[in-house]
Design a binder for these strands. Structure first.
Lengths: 157, 157
DNA sequence: GGTGAAACTTCTAATAA
DNA sequence: TTATTAGAAGTTTCACC
């Protein structure tokens, strides 16, 4: 399915997805190649755009952000979608935003301190021009599947 | 709002969120402290659970995963929620899953190669015991706000 | 708390296989 | 493509502010 990417690449990716700060020497030891090889592979994957970067995983709860919700957005005219996305991006509490097909014209995720903070953020979203109405789905519990096993499972290493 | 976290911590976090592999020496230079200080601060933030780790940001498109959707799940009995979450986590294409209040009992995000792959994943979700019905919202465009400016904007550094 | 320097580890690029 | 190697760079510890 993906061309020019082999088992070694996928194994390196899997280690780095689990811990982006893992030293190349340690990855090398684990998969039985030299550190230099790991280094060259990572550089190639970066060049190809497969690796976009590395980001710290922050615990929002500990940061005082314990309120997570998805906000479905009903949009009047589809042609407003791009403009609405641009405006959503200006709200820092909106951590992810998607133009969608289905019952909502857009769907976004918000991270807030508490309900009162969320209220203000939702008001802000409602006030974005082109937004007709929003519908909130409060997250009571969240599981992230992403960071860990993706490739190992999908590509059956 | 958050106790025992100062401007230096937030600045370090901001740099590491943007690029988790940024050397401490460079962060130190940027914010005007010593590399040793950055090191100690990061360790403390890790110990406090504020930093959970670091993860590679992978380009799903380049990996051949160009289909993203949110799947709203209607659940028969709320008491099944936990069991359903556990089962959702077993599907690797489910990258995020949330128990929610609102029109859906759960909401998850899926990453697939194409529509035919997505069809199979959605069937799998439908087949999870306790799931009554699902509703898909296909993402036509995605913006991630998360990784970059969060703290800078929220805490007005 | 923070610093700066020493000791140690890792990275990186070039060369060789 | 991979391994080796050596110099550069980064990390970590610690005695001292």
């Amino acid at each position: 399915m993906i061309r020019n990417i082999d088992k070694v690449d996928l194994q390196i990716l899997d280690f780095l997805i689990a811990d982006a700060r893992m030293p190349y020497t340690e990855i090398a030891k684990n998969i039985g190649v030299s550190a230099g090889t790991v280094h060259v592979r990572v550089k190639k994957l970066e060049k190809r755009g497969l690796i976009q970067g590395a980001s710290l995983v922050v615990n929002y709860e500990v940061m005082g952000y314990s309120f997570t919700a998805y906000v479905g957005i009903i949009i009047g005219r589809s042609s407003d979608s791009d403009k609405i996305m641009t405006n959503l991006t200006k709200i820092p509490e909106v951590t992810v935003a998607n133009i969608t097909s289905g019952q909502f014209g857009a769907l976004c995720k918000i991270r807030c301190r508490d309900t009162s903070h969320a209220k203000n953020v939702i008001y802000k979203i409602n006030d974005v021009s082109g937004v007709v109405r929003t519908e909130s789905m409060i997250s009571l519990e969240e599981t992230i599947n992403d960071k860990k096993r993706l490739f190992k499972q999908i590509f059956e290493l």
